[in-house]
Nucleic acid binder design. Structure first.
Length: 675
RNA sequence: CGGGACGUAGCGCAGCUUGGCUAGCGCGCUUGGUUCGGGACCAAGAGGUCGCGGGUUCAAAUCCCGCCGUCCCGACCA
């Protein structure tokens, strides 16, 4: 038996799967309660003679390193385990396989169950300082006591890494460990986007873009339904245009990309900017399009009969941000910007409010993200706006995210672009304006509101794929039968207007497919295997459930899965999707409620935001803008909005006194940390 | 722009302190076989200007200098 083991090991000279290598000795079953501990000493003795001969015999130089490692470590493993030092160890979830930041004993890595590790001999002779061992654990062979043959040997260090990290290749860091990293991991695993070679810019991958397309469709339909039409304006804005509206220009001055030349040339084999091609007037890459659009509106508007002018454009814009995060804040992003012109202030304000309602409706009914509508404080107002309205959502970590804004611009842009009209009374008057926009940031909101430690969770209304079908089979005949049935099921679901993906890829285990589609947020999975063919059933698995307290991950997995008679299963897909859409909103509402507090004192405020579960604070505020800024810096919070009265929870209604100054305040505002 | 870290195969990383074997490992990829109801295994392969430039040396991924780039933490902002 030992010989066989030896041969096994030699055949894979570069890495050893310890569990496999010693599986037959039952060491791997140590963590099972029924293991007979009495057998362990015997087992632990077995490798020793081998070790000695290996080290002293002439075969030693050719002995594969990992094998060497195994035979040195095996006794330690067994002994440690035998002494009961580490009876049962669960693998702690780490970000990357190599980055095991906590100390792990040989017995730990050996016993950690489904994951395997390789031992890799390091050329390194000296131990590293502890802080440098974060990516790998080095273990000294000489640590083994009482082995004379090793005493004269120089210490040998081993790098211990998880083996077969296919399971961990792109793991999702749990939210509880590092929320920011979790967010990035979800994006990566779901293949939504990635960093591009250009700093601060992202590549939106097909799956991420498909979500954006769904959002576009929903929003565009709503814009059309409220009388808007689409148009397109150029990406380049002459510098002088931007400068026309003073506040606006000042607001964006620090984050503009500027085009100054229009030609390149070859110079000494290098491509360089041709200095002779300098533009007379630099062009600003639009950070937003008010100025260039209003320059055009001047030609389009003469009379009240031309109003209202209701135009939207889908475009990209560039804002040169210092720090960026995928989807939430990137240098270039995709968005939609509506720009409307009206004859009266009332009408324009009504338009701005109407579009905010459209956004809120979209957020809640399509994205399943509850939002609070309100006004921005003057300090947070859009540069050049008279009033900025916004919708604010709460992410799972309790931080607020501005998900859309709508501005009443008054006559500011009409004045700067000199856009006037003759009203019914024949008087010349400046036009009243609005603008409003939402961006790919919404995808960030979607991720941070619903997703979990398994990856993306999508509301069915925005899922590019509603149902994924995974066929399961052993033999060729089973394969053709299941695929045939899967094709039929797919066709029937498509006939219901659903988007269905049949994952018939070869050579990938069904389990791997399950994980992949879960990470991508597909709401429903149908498994079709031989059992189903025989019984006329289908296995329906939903992406998420409302968590029940005390429920384990395994229990939840079980509860997500149901075998149903074929017809019943097919009929239940649509209702199930609708249920899930509803439950996502409910769950998000419940989280927001749990993380919202009515706060009346400074001490309470401080305690709320110092604690583990900060969120939305409903407070009375009557401070000055300077106090607002200082207060915000002190607690890293900001006034997210001055909510519309109907947005304030009943218990928080009514006047009170400012928690900082004690001045009277007519209503509460929403304070939170924000993205 | 200030502080910190990093740059080695498509991805994740070892190797560098103390220069020298043919630059390795895992994943992924290719081919063949066995598998398949929660991340399969075996075998054989393909894949690298070690960020760029210069210097020291018989010899540089490793030491020195310069540059470029990326990420993180601040100031700024949606």
């Amino acid at each position: 038996m030992l010989q066989r083991r030896h041969d096994d090991l030699v055949r894979c000279p570069n890495a050893i799967d310890i569990r496999r290598a010693i599986r037959n000795r039952e060491i791997a079953r140590i963590h099972h309660p029924q293991i007979n501990v009495q057998r362990l000493p015997k087992l632990s003795r077995t490798p020793r003679p081998r070790l000695r001969t290996s080290l002293t015999g002439r075969k030693r130089p050719t002995l594969p390193d990992p094998m060497h490692a195994l035979f040195i470590l095996a006794p330690i493993l067994v002994q440690t385990a035998h002494r009961g030092l580490v009876p049962r160890v669960k693998h702690r979830h780490t970000k990357r396989p190599q980055k095991i930041t906590h100390s792990i004993s040989p017995a730990q890595f050996f016993l950690c169950g489904p994951r395997r590790y390789k031992i890799h001999r390091s050329r390194q002779v000296h131990p590293r300082p502890p802080e440098q061992t974060t990516h790998a654990l080095h273990y000294t062979g000489s640590a083994r006591a009482g082995e004379e043959s090793l005493a004269s040997q120089p210490p040998i260090h081993y790098t211990i890494q998880p083996m077969n990290p296919s399971a961990e290749q792109t793991p999702v860091t749990p939210r509880s460990v590092d929320y920011a990293q979790w967010y990035l991991d979800v994006i990566k695993r779901a293949e939504l986007a990635e960093h591009s070679p250009v700093r601060g810019c992202m590549v939106i991958r097909p799956h991420g873009y498909a979500i954006w397309e769904k959002m576009q469709r929903e929003l565009d339909d709503r814009f059309k339904a409220t009388g808007h039409v689409n148009a397109y304006f150029p990406m380049f804005i002459p510098l002088s245009f931007l400068a026309r509206e003073e506040q606006h220009a000042a607001g964006f001055a620090k984050e503009c990309a500027v085009v100054t030349h229009y030609r390149l040339k070859s110079q000494n084999g290098e491509v360089v900017v041709d200095p002779d091609s300098k533009l007379e007037e630099p062009l600003v890459v639009r950070p937003t399009s008010e100025t260039i659009i209003w320059a055009q509106y001047k030609n389009w508007i003469q009379s009240y009969r031309d109003l209202p002018l209701l135009i939207n454009q889908w475009a990209n814009v560039v804002r040169w941000e210092m720090r960026t995060r995928l989807f939430l804040r990137t240098t270039e992003f995709l968005w939609q910007e509506g720009h409307t012109a009206h004859a009266t202030a009332e009408e324009a304000i009504e338009e701005a409010r109407r579009m905010l309602d459209v956004y809120a409706d979209f957020a809640e009914n399509v994205m399943a993200v509850p939002v609070i509508k309100g006004c921005k404080t003057p300090g947070e107002r859009f540069a050049g706006a008279v009033e900025t309205y916004c919708i604010e959502g709460m992410m799972q970590d309790g931080k607020a995210l501005q998900m859309g804004t709508s501005h009443y611009l008054g006559q500011n842009f009409a004045k700067s672009a000199d856009v006037t009209f003759l009203n019914r009374q024949g008087q010349r008057e400046y036009v009243y304006a609005t603008s409003w926009g939402v961006s790919t940031r919404l995808i960030g909101a979607l991720i941070m509101t619903h997703s979990d430690d398994n990856g993306l969770v999508l509301p069915p209304k925005l899922a590019p794929i509603h149902v994924v079908i995974v066929p399961i089979f052993k033999t060729d005949t089973e394969k053709s039968r299941t695929l045939e049935e899967a094709g039929r099921v797919a066709a029937e679901l498509r006939a219901q207007g659903l988007t269905v993906k049949l994952d018939d890829r070869d050579g990938i285990m069904p389990g791997a497919k399950f994980y992949e589609w879960e990470a991508k947020g597909v709401p429903l999975r149908i498994e079709i295997g031989p059992k189903d063919l025989d019984q006329g059933s289908l296995c329906l698995v939903r992406r998420f459930l409302i968590e029940q307290p005390g429920e384990s991950a395994a229990d939840q997995r079980k509860r997500r899965k149901q075998f149903l008679p074929r017809a019943e299963a097919l009929a239940s897909v649509r209702p199930l999707l609708e249920t899930m859409q509803r439950e996502l909103l409910e769950r998000a509402r419940a989280l927001r409620a749990a993380r919202s507090r009515i706060i009346n004192s400074l001490a309470e405020f401080e305690e709320f935001f110092r604690g583990d579960t900060p969120g939305f604070a409903w407070v009375h505020w009557a401070g000055s803008p300077e106090q607002e800024e200082e207060f915000g810096k002190r607690f890293e919070t900001s006034i997210r909005c001055i909510p519309f009265p109907d947005q304030i929870p009943p218990a928080a209604q009514g006047p009170g006194t400012c928690l900082l100054t004690g001045q009277p305040s007519s209503q509460r505002v929403l304070m939170a940390r924000a993205y």
